[in-house]
Nucleic acid binder design. Structure first.
Lengths: 136, 136
DNA sequence: TATAAACTCTATAATAACAATAGAGTCAAC
DNA sequence: GTTGACTCTATTGTTATTATAGAGTTTATA
């Protein structure tokens, strides 16, 4: 049985994060030692790695909770999993589009000022001051 | 002179947001009426639109504060403005790359499950459980 | 055996940029 | 005078952690 520090090392999740996941019911309340220290077995390692993998895909803690719940009822249809993934992918793609557009605007704005001008002549500040959002 | 509700309508910033900007010193403390209501003139409108424009470019409030400070010393070089913009553009582009990679992983994961399977057979959950992050 | 180092515990606050609410006060019109 | 629309301050909530504070536990060393 591992104490929380060792679990942290093995999984790469910080100690506070593990405690946080427990509070959020993503992992079960751990057994305690005589001195009230949390004790974990291998299943805790697996579960944490599952959560970590999900987090690396930007899934939210409630989304992960849902996946874990589905995992516990292995006979049910997995349409729910698919729907969640589809929605998540859509969100990510929307954000990519937004950022791409943003990047174009920023680059255009950046081109409006060369170094060594004074602030007074700075095209960036002038354009930011313009009421219209379009920069041309 | 406008009260905060009218300023909100004109600029499209919410009332709370305007008060928040005041607390964060992005706009000056407004004059007050006899009844302690905030009163604004046209310069407040311009300033808020400047801030709004910056926010639409995902500039942080501290970054905006810096731009506003530079704006007040019109004789100084605007290298600082350029540096900030370059750094910001870099951040946005990094985030786009991250999300693009994430999107590929999510799509690959999504393909590992067709509807109408049971959770037990679900490739998504199986892959998320795999220790390795790579999905193949 | 004493004590120091390293670890753990709970609880609370901070992060970013607001949104939402509570409870109270102001102002105009009817 | 009272209703409704507005405003005020102060506090809490949002997300997923991170960072404390202050206390207790365990292990290693002197």
């Amino acid at each position: 049985m591992k104490k929380i520090g060792e679990l942290s090392k093995v999984t790469g999740c910080s100690v506070q994060t593990i405690r946080h996941y427990e509070k959020e019911h993503l992992i079960a309340s751990a057994e305690r030692s005589e001195g009230n220290f949390r004790l974990y077995d291998e299943s805790a390692v697996e579960r944490l790695l599952f959560i970590k993998h999900c987090r690396s895909l930007d899934l939210s803690l409630p989304e992960i909770r849902q996946l874990l719940a589905l995992n516990r009822s292995p006979g049910s249809q997995c349409d729910d999993v698919n729907r969640m993934m589809d929605r998540h992918i859509e969100q990510v793609e929307t954000r990519i589009q937004e950022l791409t557009k943003l990047n174009e605007q920023l680059r255009m704005l950046r081109r409006s000022c060369t170094n060594r001008r004074t602030v007074e002549q700075c095209g960036i500040l002038r354009n930011l001051s313009a009421t219209s959002v379009s920069i041309g």
